[in-house]
Amino acid sequence: MPPELGLFLRFQVQRHLSAALRRPGDIFNPLVFFLMVVTLFPLGLGPDPEVLADFAPGIVWVVALLSSLTVSSRLFQADYEDGTLEQLALAPHPLALAAMSEVLSHWLLSGVVLALASPVFAAMLNMPVQAIPTLMLSLVLGTLCLSLTGAIGAALTVGLRRGGVLLSLLTIPLTVPVLIFGVGAVREAALGYDPSGWLALLGALAAGGLVLAPLAAAAGLRISLEL
């Protein structure tokens, strides 16, 4: 008899979180990366606060996408290399659920943390204060979409030697809607418009992604296990 579903998911998430908490560098390094890349923009575009405020939504979102991509490439790497993935594939629970738990814990540690830290970046780029709640909410929803998309790419490339660049090649085109909706929401909020429509679209992407992406990722993982 297979053990309880909830217990399985909880244990999976617990496993990832406790492993990650023992090596906090993995959580903070992407944030530092984010901070550094955000710093590059005023250096490249000039310090004019108005120009920066104009570009701020786009900058924050593009950098969020890039940092999400860099972390995604490691999503299933450890499990693949130490054999855990084989065991998950043979477990009585659907592999898709295991993939989903992996994505969710990854998202909690990267996306949600990033969203929580985002007001700092908003301030650095002179983003209007009224846009900050929207920025955070859009990042919470959007990074979940990015993690889900990244999981598909990671599942398909985890068994390949030069998977990293290929992963970006596969996933960047798929993340275009997330970028557009995310920037749309923040931009509208910064201009004083109502961002709820864009946020709703991001939420829809996240909900739809939660259904479909784990299935695709599981299929990808099974293929990678053949190698």
Binding site: E188, Y193, G203, A204, A207
Partner: peptide
């Protein structure tokens, strides 16, 4: 639940909430 959430959110967005 997730699919209906997705459909509901999209229809909310399309009902003129994107200006």
């Amino acid at each position: 639940v997730l699919s209906s959430a997705a459909v509901g959110l999209v229809s909310y967005a399309l009902r003129g909430n994107i200006n």
